[in-house]
């Protein structure tokens, strides 16, 4: 059978064009060439810290389609929820997409415990959202903090490839949590690292880095920030007086991610937008961050229940000799 570029069997006149049958397609049991309906193989996993880990997932078609700024929805297992994650990287040659996950809630902790190289994720759909536009930006600041460090990388790389002067600013709690420094240095003309405790780079928040970059450069065209809402708001407030165009990538609660449920609606100026199909990138100076943060809190009680149930099940699985204790559940920020 001759496969075309998409791994779909060609027929009739198309056969002469058929080429590039990926050797790994034959070994994977896919219903139609490269297309997987469910069960996406995890190629590799890297743990950056106690909470942060990277998954590289085989999905050649998505690797080809993905653009910076887009996100995917992951379903870890059959009973799992649909979790939106901004793409951290995609490699067209390897046919993989990369996700960096912070284990902060029940679902992500469960992913951390269960998803290993050689295994698979139940569902993976994307790329979703409107890709970010590099335009004719000459000089750009790319800011990543917390869970936003990884997804800012493809944006920085895209700006670099488009010929812009790229200033990267990444924020971590301390030196031990730093990852991808070499990857960032490869695509950034300048890289400013900020840590909360000053163990590396500037001591303080990423906004200090922005202020420093703005002092050094008076001709910054745009700032792109990805991270927790509170960080993105701080970035937008830092650039507002400087008049620098600021783009933020919003991460509201989603269900389907295709514009069907409206759970991800956000307030931009005085208009309601759906982050999944109208975004996820929006003008940071227009975003109502209070509204976003309120809406991110709406399932807090249920998150706690899920976490407690899971913790209890884990303890039972480990045959912990201690009786079910009254220890308070780990309460992590969900964003």
């Amino acid at each position: 059978m001759v496969l075309n570029d998409w791994g779909l069997a060609m027929s009739g006149q198309g056969e002469s064009l058929g080429s590039a049958s990926q050797p790994d397609c034959a070994t994977l049991n896919m219903p139609s060439g490269e297309f997987i309906s469910s069960g996406f193989p995890i190629i590799s996993r890297t743990d950056f810290s106690d909470t942060t880990f990277l998954l590289e997932i085989h999905h050649p078609v998505m690797a080809r389609a993905a653009r910076p700024g887009q996100f995917v929805i992951v379903i870890a297992h059959e009973h799992g929820e649909r979790i939106p994650l901004t793409l951290a990287d995609f490699d067209r040659d390897r046919g993989t997409v990369t996700l960096v996950v912070q284990a902060v809630g029940k679902s992500t902790k469960e992913m951390q415990a269960n998803l290993q190289a050689g295994g698979e994720v139940f569902g993976l759909v994307g790329p979703m959202g409107v890709p970010s536009n590099q335009g004719d930006v000459k000089k750009v600041i790319c800011v990543g903090g917390g869970l936003g460090v990884a997804p800012i990388f493809p944006q920085a790389r895209a700006f670099k490839e488009a010929g812009a002067y790229v200033i990267g600013i990444v924020g971590f709690r301390n030196i031990d949590l730093i990852f991808w420094e070499d990857k960032f240095r490869a695509v950034c003309d300048e890289l400013i690292i900020c840590t909360d405790d000053g163990s590396a780079g500037i001591k303080g928040l990423v906004t200090l880095g922005i202020e420093q970059a703005a002092r050094d450069h008076s001709d910054i065209d745009e700032l792109v920030a990805i991270g927790p809402p509170i960080m993105m708001r701080a970035c937008a407030e830092t650039t507002r007086p400087l008049g620098i165009k600021t783009t933020v990538s919003l991460n509201p609660i989603m269900v389907d991610g295709t514009g069907m449920c409206g759970g991800c609606r956000v307030k931009i100026g005085d208009r309601i937008k759906f982050a999944c199909v109208d975004g996820p990138d929006f003008d940071g100076h227009e975003v109502d961050f209070d509204d976003l943060m309120n809406r991110l809190r709406r399932y807090k009680a249920e998150e706690k229940v899920a976490q407690e149930t899971w913790d209890k099940n884990c303890r039972q699985l480990q045959l912990d000799p201690e009786p079910a204790p009254d220890t308070p559940p780990e309460s992590g920020p969900t964003s």
Partner: peptide, 30 residues
């Protein structure tokens, strides 16, 4: 309209029918 507790029928039905929210926390979607 953006207050917590306001949702579309699509979201309610999707959470319940597709994501089995009625069986939370056995299913993850609340």
């Amino acid at each position: 309209e953006n207050l917590n507790g306001v949702l579309s029928a699509n979201e309610l039905l999707t959470r319940c029918n597709l994501m089995h929210a009625g069986q939370f926390p056995d299913y993850d979607t609340p």
